[in-house]
Write a protein that binds this DNA or RNA. Structure first.
Ligand code: FES
Ligand code: FES
Lengths: 131, 131
DNA sequence: TTAATAAAAGACAAAAATATCCTTTTATAT
DNA sequence: ATATAAAAGGATATTTTTGTCTTTTATTAA
């Protein structure tokens, strides 16, 4: 998503192969995740020759939080640090209060960080997509 | 570890069965983790009738950070949020700076939270070991 | 000394996450 | 129209994590 967000406005779409290379991720595995993102309308895909993927109108504006939610679910934002079946104020685990602060810190960061924010750093060469 | 830390000073040791029930974790699986903690000297074990586990002298003082490090390794404290092979200032990912703050928040919390802190809450009935 | 008890260790099994392969569908260009 | 390119979908495979089972070793108590 970050890579696709770095593409200039109105750019042609980018093929799976090129994406996989750019982010150093296995092609077939990357394809599965891209499919998920298309199903959830964060990406659009074009089949056939010169086909590929590009970020959708709605995808452009989404937060990192939304991308994570679509790909991995929201357990990272709601789960108990110590693995209790449910994180709850009523029946907190031994680190609930301390952990909640950190989890909220993470959630807040991810909700306020947009793909555009991240793409900007990549475009400017101050951050990277692969090691 | 938290459960064993709630045991009164100079208490007899606690059997695997009792531990597994107390924390609602499968017995055999719990046993494997206890073995790891014994190998790393955070726990002591006593074999034979009336045997079991108890927290060691060194174990009493350890932080949550140390327990996690022993059981799961330190990737949670050092790994890249976006899965780059290495988290680095020289070649940061798109959320490195924002994520580092959160990771440091987590690391700090875990380094300063001791088993005794967590055990106190359990003993006082304000926090719980299972749902 | 022996029987019973409990942890240690190692082999094995199941489930989940990660990853690949193959066939089908759709679009493009000739 | 047809050959080709590219994503979609489904089946399969691998790896890691989680979990079990069985045998061995150590300890205690009768
Ligand atoms: S109950 Fe464990 S983090 Fe909330
Ligand atoms: S490089 Fe990604 S968190 Fe540091």
């Amino acid at each position: 998503m970050i890579f696709l967000a770095t593409m200039p406005e109105g750019e042609e779409c980018i093929g799976l192969k090129e994406i996989a290379v750019a982010i150093n991720s296995p092609e077939a595995f990357t394809a599965k995740i891209l499919q998920t993102l298309v199903r959830e309308h964060l990406l659009e895909s074009i089949k056939g020759p010169n086909g590929g993927f590009r970020i959708s109108e709605s995808g452009k504006k989404v937060s990192l939080h939304r991308v994570v939610e679509v790909v991995d679910g929201d357990s990272i934002f709601t789960g108990c640090a110590l693995g209790l079946q449910e994180c709850s104020e009523k029946r907190p685990c031994a680190v609930h209060h301390k952990f909640k602060a950190i989890r909220d810190h993470l959630t807040g960061m991810m909700m306020t960080t947009t793909l555009e924010d991240m793409a900007k750093g990549i475009r400017q060469g101050v951050s990277y997509l692969k090691y």
